[in-house]
């Protein structure tokens, strides 16, 4: 471990909140880094590589979240991850309904 963990605090701007699609994108990206990724909401902390735990944050638009990354690739990771957290999402593209059978 070179140095302490790095942190960034961002505000959720996605009108749908931090869920489903942003969580998928975040966890997928987090999984590519070697170090630990932690997300804080107030004093609650969850594993940033676990979509399950991220969902339990139930972070709506306007919530402040802090991403914390440790490990050798922390420097690159923390910026990229903070960007996903703060992303407003693709406009005009609601979550797709479940596909019909076929």
């Amino acid at each position: 471990m070179n140095g302490g963990p790095l942190r960034r605090t961002v505000t959720v701007t996605n009108p749908m909140g931090f869920h489903f699609r942003p969580i998928a994108a975040f966890a997928q990206l987090a999984g590519r880094f070697q170090g630990n990724v932690t997300v804080w909401k107030g004093d609650r902390r969850v594993n940033g590589k676990s979509p399950l735990e991220l969902m339990t944050l139930a972070a709506e638009q306007g919530t402040e979240l802090t991403v914390e990354v440790s490990g050798p690739d922390a420097a690159g990771a923390v910026d990229a991850l903070a960007e996903v957290l703060a992303s407003p999402g693709q406009e005009d593209e609601p979550e797709p309904p479940l596909p019909l059978k076929g």
Binding site: R21, A27, N47, P51, L98, P99
Partner: peptide, 13 residues
Amino acid sequence: IFTFHVLFLQDPT
């Protein structure tokens, strides 16, 4: 949707 399923099935927690 299935991307999410894949991620979930591999969820470390």
